[in-house]
C-alpha cells in the first residue's frame, strides 16, 4: 500500500514536471525569434519607461529629479530591477530629455 502510494505520487509529480518543462520549452521557442528581437531593439525610451518601471512601481515623473540625480538613480535601478544595459540607457535618456 505504502509503496504503491509513493509510486503513484512519483508518477503524478513526473507528469506535472513534464508538463511544466514542455510548457516552458514551448514558451521559450515561441517567444524567441529574430522578428521579436528586432521589435525589442526598436523600442523607444518612452515605451520602455511605460512598460518597465511599472513592473515594480508607478512610472516616475521625469521632472522630479535633475539629470545628475537621474544618472545616480539609473545605476541603482539598473542593478535593483535587473534592467538590461539597452533598456536602462533608453529609459534614462528619455527621462533626462523630458524633465
Amino acid at each position: 500500500m505504502g509503496i504503491w502510494y509513493i509510486i503513484k505520487k512519483l508518477k503524478i509529480m513526473k507528469t506535472i514536471l513534464t508538463v511544466i518543462a514542455i510548457g516552458l520549452i514551448g514558451i521559450v521557442a515561441i517567444s524567441c525569434s529574430p522578428e521579436r528581437a528586432a521589435l525589442v531593439e526598436g523600442k523607444s525610451g518612452v515605451q520602455l519607461w511605460g512598460e518597465t518601471c511599472m513592473r515594480c512601481h508607478s512610472t516616475p515623473s521625469p521632472a522630479d529629479f535633475n539629470d545628475t540625480d537621474w544618472s545616480t538613480i539609473e545605476m541603482h535601478m539598473r542593478v535593483r530591477a535587473n534592467l538590461t544595459a539597452d533598456e536602462s540607457k533608453k529609459i534614462f535618456d528619455f527621462i533626462k530629455s523630458a524633465n
Binding site: 517567444s31 524567441c32 529574430p34 525589442v40 542593478v79 534592467l83 533598456e87
Partner: peptide, 15 residues
C-alpha cells in the same frame, strides 16, 4: 554576481 540580457526578444536576468 548579477545581470540581465536579451535572447531573441525574450529577457533573462540572473543572480
Amino acid at each position: 554576481l548579477r545581470g540581465a540580457f536579451d535572447v531573441y526578444g525574450s529577457k533573462f536576468n540572473y543572480a
